[in-house]
Design a protein around this nucleic acid. Structure first.
Lengths: 239, 239
DNA sequence: CGGCAGTTTGATGTTACTCAATTTAAGTGG
DNA sequence: CCACTTAAATTGAGTAACATCAAACTGCCG
């Protein structure tokens, strides 16, 4: 992990897309020339490295500034379950706002920039700032709603439905930042990531995707995912 | 739903086992002769009835006093995913503390008694009572940790592991109230509930359970579940 | 032009689902 | 106490979904 000074050029840092971070850093000052508070730090992680490793603890709250990452649980057998993918502006997990145990691992999928905040400083602000509090609650609610929908999908869905669900979820995350053009998304996931996220093998994911490709539902080529039939993707994803 | 007056005999009502409810109702007065606050109500639901139905909203927070219930999502195809089972003292879901949409259904498995609290009254107390706040946070953390472990089990576990995980979870819930004798638990779930909770069919659940029975790992007879080999159950459940 | 990492394809094995029949358990009414 | 009813659990046979293993293929980079 490479730590960066407070004068790191943050012009493009999109964590202000996140209502929580916007409240935290002061809603009024949209200027990126404002000096960083002492309780905020920036870090950089190369693709493939570990940002947070399971079963540690930290007095800091992590937010992804830039790039792709994912959160996962390592299981005894060497397997892992990917819990979710993190995109720019995402808080790693809402419970980190008031809980110091890191029960999960987080890996960088691409080169990433991460912003961290001292938990104590954030908690102090939480009690005084009702906007910040409400933003934190909203993230917590959204995470729970998503977790329970994902649970239902893994419990009740076919391979095709699970994969469609994942793709749609990522599309929705990306659409927050308006990076959509013609239902075409930048998509750096390898089969391995899809497989570990939806509980299948890479081989089977490959087959399902080529079936979807043949049926003109989606297409994946050169790091981009295209929804050829967005309505069908939604139908599959909604069980 | 049958509403009950404030003089309902609550001597045995175990919601004080829950730190959240204890803080809410006043930690000092353990006596059940204390009059109920106006923002608390009691209700009774017969076995098999619906307590909360999906996609409604409510200005009340639900806590199970007595009996067994479960929370689930209804899916388009007539299938359902059971999210968790509720035992005496359980808050239905932590997000209901500050969120009024009911995205789930809740059904009574046995005859149950339920206590509800006005959300507004609870939220007012939350801002003043740091114990209550910390109890709410703890419930939220525990729910998230459990949801992510369950997710991993459904994603990566075999049928046997999923079932062991569920049984162990319920055993842990029951052990809060010290209702354990020799690894033997009251267990009113039918195959259908187990199946809907772990994403299998009743037929297959039956086969797996009879295999576990033959191997002397567990036994289910006349509404009681016995762990004949608790260590094996734990090994299976931990993936 | 190799060589590696990732993907695709084929053949085969295993797990879990479906459908249908049978057994068990728990009432109910005589 | 015993026939009768009904709901749930079990069992068997056949099938579909997904996993595993191994080989071949692709794109990319030195």
């Amino acid at each position: 992990m490479e730590k960066m000074g407070n004068h790191w050029p943050c012009i493009t840092c999109p964590i202000r897309n996140n209502r929580f971070c916007r409240s935290l850093l002061g809603a009024s000052s949209q200027s990126d020339l404002t000096p960083r508070p002492r309780w905020q730090e920036f870090h950089r992680f190369p693709a493939g490295t570990t940002i947070i490793s399971q079963d540690g603890s930290s007095d800091r709250i992590y937010v992804l500034c830039d790039g792709w990452a994912f959160r996962h649980l390592k299981l005894g057998t060497g397997r892992r379950q990917i819990l979710n993918f993190l995109l720019s502006g995402d808080l790693f997990t809402s419970i980190s706002v008031f809980y110091d145990k890191m029960h999960f691992s987080a890996d960088a999928l691409s080169d990433v920039r991460v912003s961290t905040f001292q938990r104590a400083a954030v908690m102090a602000r939480l009690s005084n700032d009702s906007h910040l509090l409400s933003a934190a609650r909203q993230i917590c609610v959204d995470e729970t709603l998503y977790a329970e929908r994902l649970l239902s999908t893994l419990g009740q869905g076919t391979a095709e439905q699970r994969i469609a669900f994942l793709f749609l979820r990522i599309a929705e995350q990306l659409s927050r930042d308006n990076v959509i053009t013609n239902h075409r998304y930048y998509f750096p996931l390898r089969l391995e990531h899809i497989a570990d996220a939806v509980g299948l093998t890479t081989v089977h994911v490959s087959r399902v995707i080529s079936s979807l490709r043949k049926r003109k539902v989606i297409d994946i080529s050169q790091t981009h995912l295209t929804f050829l039939d967005p309505a069908m993707v939604e139908r599959l994803a909604s069980l």
